[in-house]
Computed example of a mutant assay.
Amino acid sequence: MKFPDKKLLHKAVFAAIICITFFLSVKVFAQNGIYQLNNKNGSYCYISFMKKGNQAEAEIFAWWNTPSAQTGSYYGSGTLISNKVRLKSNENESDCEVTLSLEQKKLCVSFDNCTVDHLPEDFNGSYTKITNATAGDYTVFAAKSYFHKEPNAASKLNSYVVKGNKVALKLDRIEAGNWVYVYYTDPKGKETEGYILLTDLRKLEI
């Protein structure tokens, strides 16, 4: 009986491990992104969700659509158990309980005792992922990336950022797809804002 070459066998095993690792990493990053809930009264809520291993963190912004322009916000993190996490926050009321459950491309969200943080049960429900972007700081990866007035190529402005510049993506203005609204502050303190292609940016690791 002829046994397979050990070197070839080792290469095959190594290739299999690489494929499995790649598949798992794609699955993880596919869950990362911003999720949205729209209510019939015009109010909405965005959740920026990031998962790394069994650790998850989320930043939440809610718009009440009221004359007073009331908003709600929350930031917390926690450990995922069976695709479910109860967030803990050092910035919000301790009585506020936020529970997230991962369901394929959906995020099932529950707010309990969060009225002080302006996140009532009106914002409970199933959230749909609208972009792979997550809130936070990004570095410009493209050699030059122009700002746009609207999320389309036809509205290009004269202002731009270059490779290595740092921009911030906030939850107060989110678009579905590959366009993100970002803020850039130059060394003199002047701020420029507008839409940029997400593919021109890379998320900064904390």
Rank of each mutant, 00 (worst) to 15 (best):
D172K: 06
E121G: 06
K188Q: 14
P67N: 09
E91N: 11
F29Y: 15
G72C: 02
K88I: 07
G78V: 08
V140L: 04
A15Y: 09
N32T: 14
G42P: 02
G136R: 05
S43E: 07
A58M: 04
F49S: 01
N65W: 03
K106P: 06
V162C: 08
N32C: 15
C19L: 12
A153Y: 11
E93P: 05
P151W: 05
L9H: 05
L107T: 05
Q36E: 10
D200R: 03
K6M: 13
A16L: 10
Y74H: 02
N124Q: 13
E93D: 13
T131G: 12
I60A: 01
D95G: 09
N165C: 09
L8N: 10
P120N: 07
A135M: 10
I17N: 02
V26F: 08
L80F: 04
P187K: 12
W64S: 03
S25L: 15
K40F: 04
A30N: 15
L102K: 06
I60F: 01
F61A: 04
R86D: 10
Y181R: 06
L80E: 03
A142V: 04
C108E: 12
K190N: 15
I17A: 09
I60V: 14
K2I: 11
F147M: 05
Q70F: 02
Y195F: 15
N165D: 12
Y138I: 00
S43V: 04
K190R: 15
Y184Q: 02
N39V: 02
A135G: 08
F49Q: 00
V140I: 07
K188C: 08
L171D: 00
Q70Y: 02
D117I: 01
G125S: 08
Y74W: 09
N38M: 11
I130S: 02
L102P: 02
